[in-house]
Structures are given as C-alpha cells and as structure tokens.
Amino acid sequence: MVDQVKLMIAEEQKFQGKALSLSHTKTAITTMKEKFTEQQLQMFEQSCFGHLLRIEDLKWTSPIVHGLLLRKADPKTVSQLNGIKFIVGNKVIQFTAQQFCIVTRLRFGNLPFILIPTNENCSLKRKYFANDKTVNLLELEKAFLKCDDEDDVLKLGFIYFAVFVLLGSEKHVHIDMRYLKLAEDLEEFGKYPWGAITSE
C-alpha cells in the first residue's frame, strides 16, 4: 500500500540538484574505436559488452534522474524490499538487480574468486604495471593507448570499457587489480557477472 510507504526525502525537504554520471561513455567508446583494428572491434562487438557500444550517443538526463531519486521509497517502510523502490504518482514501482541485468544483457550471479595479480602470475601486470601496487583509471588509459601488442590491446580494451563505461569513476580512482588477471582469459572475462557489479 502506498499509504504505508514513505519517501526517503520528504516532499517538504526536496532540493534542487544535478545527478552526476561518472561514466566516461562517449569518450571511452570513441577512444576504443580509434585504437582497435577492424578485427579487434568485431571481436569486441561479439563479446558480452558488444551491444553496449550503441550507448555512445545515449543522453544523460540529470533532471529526470534527480527527480526520480527524490521519489525513492524509504526501505524501512517497504515490505519485501527487492531492489530499489520509488513512489511515482500513486504507485510504488521497483527496479531490481535482475531487471537491470535483463535491460543491459549483462550476466548476474555470484562473484567468482580471482587471484590477486602479481608480476609472476599475470602478464598484463608484469608488462604494464610491474612496479605498481595500485592502478588508477588514468594510468590504465595511458597503458591502453600506448600498447602496441595486438592481444594485449584487446585485453586492456575490455578492462578499459568495464571501468570507464560500466563502473564509471573519477580518473584518479584505483581499479580493481583483479580485472587484470581476469582479462588474461577473455572467455572467462565474458562470463564474469558484470551485471551484479554494475547494479550495486
């Protein structure tokens, strides 16, 4: 019942704001298309992320996102909380992680164990980040742009897309180093439950 569900932010406490998107979608996809060969681009298009190349021209509408976030239901007043719920009009609507994965066509499930990469067990770590315990988005981007090894360009490109487009963050933020190890096997990289990560 809508009457029992309360807003997280009461109507009288609404405020003007601008919801930010930290995804570098347009820039990242343009960079990848310029860096990849035709064959590499075709391989990427056939991957778990391929269909997402079409979001390059997707417009971010911060007023709509901000308005919807102001309608978020207080979880303490919601029974059977599954995902995120909003009060829109006179109805409670919800958006679940499973629905997110259906819309994005990304896998959903338990996160598998991935070894922490070292110079001994991960060639990407050894070749491009041998002296680094952590790597931020800017350093990853530099390595991707400078890379001239055909196989490594593709592997770094997958990580680049994941962190720049799907996960989105400021360029000084560190990436999860385990993605370097995961990208060594692109088949396993494609099976990774990216939907579970991005819907959090």
Rank of each mutant, 00 (worst) to 15 (best):
residue 118 T to K: 10
residue 115 L to W: 02
residue 178 R to A: 10
residue 143 A to S: 14
residue 144 F to I: 08
residue 173 V to Q: 04
residue 176 D to S: 10
residue 122 C to S: 14
residue 196 A to D: 14
residue 152 D to W: 14
residue 181 K to V: 03
residue 182 L to D: 00
residue 129 F to G: 03
residue 177 M to G: 01
residue 152 D to H: 15
residue 175 I to S: 00
residue 143 A to W: 12
residue 183 A to E: 08
residue 179 Y to T: 06
residue 163 V to A: 02
residue 194 W to D: 01
residue 160 Y to G: 03
residue 127 K to Q: 14
residue 144 F to D: 00
residue 190 G to T: 07
residue 122 C to V: 13
residue 171 K to Q: 07
residue 185 D to H: 11
residue 167 L to E: 02
residue 193 P to H: 06
residue 142 K to F: 05
residue 191 K to C: 11
residue 168 G to A: 05
residue 122 C to E: 10
residue 180 L to S: 02
residue 125 K to C: 05
residue 172 H to I: 13
residue 177 M to V: 12
residue 177 M to S: 05
residue 117 P to E: 13
residue 158 F to C: 11
residue 158 F to R: 08
residue 169 S to W: 11
residue 124 L to D: 00
residue 125 K to R: 15
residue 115 L to Q: 13
residue 118 T to R: 08
residue 163 V to I: 09
residue 167 L to W: 00
residue 179 Y to S: 04
residue 183 A to G: 09
residue 179 Y to E: 05
residue 146 K to V: 02
residue 149 D to S: 15
residue 182 L to P: 00
residue 199 S to M: 09
residue 193 P to Q: 07
residue 156 L to H: 07
residue 161 F to W: 08
residue 155 K to R: 15
residue 186 L to A: 05
residue 120 E to Y: 14
residue 161 F to N: 01
residue 175 I to A: 01
residue 149 D to L: 13
residue 171 K to L: 08
residue 178 R to H: 07
residue 179 Y to W: 12
residue 155 K to H: 12
residue 199 S to W: 08
residue 129 F to Q: 08
residue 121 N to S: 13
residue 167 L to T: 00
residue 165 V to P: 01
residue 145 L to T: 09
residue 194 W to Q: 01
residue 195 G to R: 03
residue 136 N to D: 15
residue 178 R to T: 14
residue 197 I to A: 07
residue 199 S to H: 04
residue 134 T to V: 10
residue 139 E to G: 03
residue 198 T to H: 08
